[in-house]
């Protein structure tokens, strides 16, 4: 009985053989040419089985990005057997569309983007960068050691847990993990991952947690073990990762309450967004010539402190009154500390 390992290798060989043979072929191959070919990995006594295998192989290669389609040259009778070829336009990167300037911009932009500590996109973007260079779209070249330039080594230095989380998210398969929370409790749970983000150099993922049956956020460096992902899921269409980017005023068991802050009119929009981390709702108030930022807070004192930490930017709390009172109180406490020295 062949081992599972041998079966996997045979299947992998057959898939690669199919790609290679179709790439080398000077014209599309007929179904018969393919499914009767023992060198390719078909040609068993059971033609129906080989036909099913060929169909499953096309599906698997499509998942890998290699699209094998049926072609029917003009004038070919309908009764003629199907012929198969790699759909080159849909399979291979189209270098003629992307300009060298586009590719150079993207390669260097990716290098800047990936230099942010904790970026959750490191592995897939490193792969994108490698493909840009490999496709000859950019003036960058792969070095003789196969290195990718500035991101060289970054992909390899990634946490294996980040790889596991990313793969689970990309495949939309729930990820069983052993997670140690901030209190030190180690709990096994399965998370259907809805999104990822980085904050202050750390990487987080958010998803439906089967242990609590709620949407929770987890820190990747607290995942102690991950198992093979399984169980497909769908991300709710109204899910927004920015609703889960936490700020200092989120860490409380209190009910969330609506708060409003203002920023001066002269604040660039990007800066206003950056202060709030994209949380809540930022609008320009034309009547009062200022920005208003509406966000839910759980800890009033922490929200007041957050506003004071950005006081020089003109960030001021305006609602609720309790928040404004807290803000004034903090200022008075700091003044008192300096007056009573």
């Amino acid at each position: 009985m062949p081992s599972r390992s041998t079966e996997r290798e045979d299947a992998a060989q057959r898939l690669l053989n199919l790609v290679f043979t179709l790439s080398c072929a000077t014209m599309p191959l007929t179904t018969e040419q393919i499914v009767s070919d023992t060198d390719l990995g078909y040609g068993s006594d059971n033609r129906a089985s080989d036909l099913r295998k060929f169909r499953r192989d096309r599906e698997e290669l499509a998942r890998q990005g290699i699209l094998i389609t049926e072609v029917r040259p003009e004038g070919t009778p309908e009764t003629d057997p199907g012929r198969w070829a790699i759909d080159r336009e849909r399979t291979f990167a189209a270098g003629g569309i992307v300009t060298a300037d586009d590719a150079d911009l993207l390669v260097h932009a990716i290098d800047d983007y990936l230099s942010v500590p904790g970026n959750p996109l490191a592995r897939p973007l490193s792969s994108v960068r490698r493909k840009l260079v490999a496709a000859g779209m950019t003036t960058d070249t792969l070095s003789a050691d196969g290195g990718e330039g500035p991101t060289d080594g970054k992909a390899s230095s990634l946490s294996p847990m980040l790889d596991a989380v990313w793969t689970s998210y990309a495949l939309r398969l729930a990820l069983p993990i052993a997670y140690r929370d901030a209190r030190g409790n180690l709990i096994k749970r399965t998370v259907s991952i809805y999104g990822l983000f980085s904050l202050d150099g750390r990487t987080y993922f958010t998803g439906l947690d089967d242990h609590t049956n709620t949407v929770r956020t987890f820190r990747i460096d607290r995942v102690e073990r991950a198992w093979r992902p399984k169980g497909s899921y769908v991300i709710p269409p109204d899910f927004n990762i920015r609703d889960h980017l936490f700020l200092p005023f989120d860490f409380s068991r209190n009910e969330a309450m609506a708060a409003r802050f203002t920023l001066p009119d002269s604040t660039p929009r990007e800066e206003a967004l950056a202060i709030g981390g994209g949380r809540g709702s930022l609008k320009h108030d034309d009547e009062h010539a200022c920005w208003t930022w509406d966000v839910e807070v759980r800890d009033l004192r922490a929200a007041a402190a957050f506003a004071l930490a950005h006081a020089r930017s003109g960030l001021r709390p305006v609602q609720p009154k309790a928040l404004v009172d807290c803000w004034c109180e903090l200022v008075k406490e700091a003044i008192a500390r300096h007056e009573n020295r």
Binding site: I110, L121, V128, K131, A170
Partner: peptide, 19 residues
């Protein structure tokens, strides 16, 4: 054995779109 560069897969495409 030379292989032309493949288009991005869905995972890479999502990352590129975000970037």
């Amino acid at each position: 054995g030379r292989l032309q560069t493949l288009r991005l897969d869905i995972s890479e495409g999502m990352a590129l779109a975000a970037a």
